[in-house]
Nucleic acid binder design. Sequence first.
DNA 1: GCCTGTGAATCCATTCACAGCT
DNA 2: AGCTGTGAATGGATTCACAGGC
Lengths: 217, 217
Amino acid sequence: MGNETKIPAPTIERLAQYSRPLESLLESGTTVISSEKLARLCGVNPAQVRKDLAYFGEFGVRGVGYDVADLLAAIKKILGSDQEWALCIVGMGNLGRALVENENFKKRGYRFVAAFDSDSRRVGTRLPCGLTIQPISRLKEEVESLMVDIGVISCIPPEAQRAADLLMDAGVKAILNFSPAQVRTPECCVVQNVDFSVKLENLVYHLQKIEETGRPG
Amino acid sequence: MGNETKIPAPTIERLAQYSRPLESLLESGTTVISSEKLARLCGVNPAQVRKDLAYFGEFGVRGVGYDVADLLAAIKKILGSDQEWALCIVGMGNLGRALVENENFKKRGYRFVAAFDSDSRRVGTRLPCGLTIQPISRLKEEVESLMVDIGVISCIPPEAQRAADLLMDAGVKAILNFSPAQVRTPECCVVQNVDFSVKLENLVYHLQKIEETGRPG
DNA sequence: GCCTGTGAATCCATTCACAGCT
DNA sequence: AGCTGTGAATGGATTCACAGGC
């Protein structure tokens, strides 16, 4: 199938999830996998796996399955994670510091090239990864000259919108927002929100239901 | 409307999101808000807001809107975030340390009461929040005696499933999983996954599309 | 006039079931 | 026989549009 169909957002989300077990399978020497087995590893329906992949082409062999290495390469190509991407981060509290050192990001080709904070007491600090925390006033210049692709927001909620505006003004087209505040952007800039406390509140809702009824709600 | 209807999962997710701007509105002294304005603050459809709330009762006044304080209290009650909850955490790398110190968690009544790590070099470390990192071997006893409600997993992927098994064996019914690995649980235990790199790969997919077509895919 | 609460209509995603290839 | 690729069927969730109350 061609490139023209509109791809459902959940499909993109799942493609990334499929790649995790595929990496393990590749390391462990498994060369071929069926949609059924991959589906079980990811906790989804086998038809879902086949349909998701079919949006982008025919990667499998009927009667056999999918070649692990080929499929992983294809998914990475589709997602764009076969390339390196430059990130910057705004807000160097505990979370910000943990993120710039994160091994998962490094392993997948996401490279932090600049770190900013609005608190002058943090500016100038040299981080273990080698970066030095810079003032927000340097953001635009740095982001432009280092050709940052993605901005990560890990500042306090009241500063989140301003961080987003500065990033966009500097030409950033994609934002990963860890602050529990809605960030408004024009259509040309993509935002993904990661709100831990929303997830916790979800859990807590189900816990309550378990206590009341013995089953998750 | 009664308590009997099956509530859609996205509704629960959004209720938590509604509570964020409501908190700000309450602080800023706004007493009443319409579904339209709340919807705009959260980036959703106004009818969606009304329908989500209607699953749990009639909170609004026709011709007027919703009382901010009442609505916030009602949502917290529904979600269970009007209570305090005890958390423990497994895996005290950079991310784990950032999570136990996180101000958002504290503010919302989520209290870390124990921290564990499988690496003996980390065990015994006293954390700024006052907790001391304990060995995994102490997990079951501690979790039981401290009556932990929720387990947070922030260890490396190959250890994630074992961490989940230990937590469940100790009676934990809800898990927040930060490791990029699928965690298998029986139906009686709820899991929420927070996978940063999946979100990043999502962004990168859209970035590629922007480069190709000038518009997000 | 304004805004909520809600059935009806629409839209979208998931799952089924089987044709088609190896 | 086995497993993919895919139209058709199902199942949910979102949005519309308006009746009902302030």
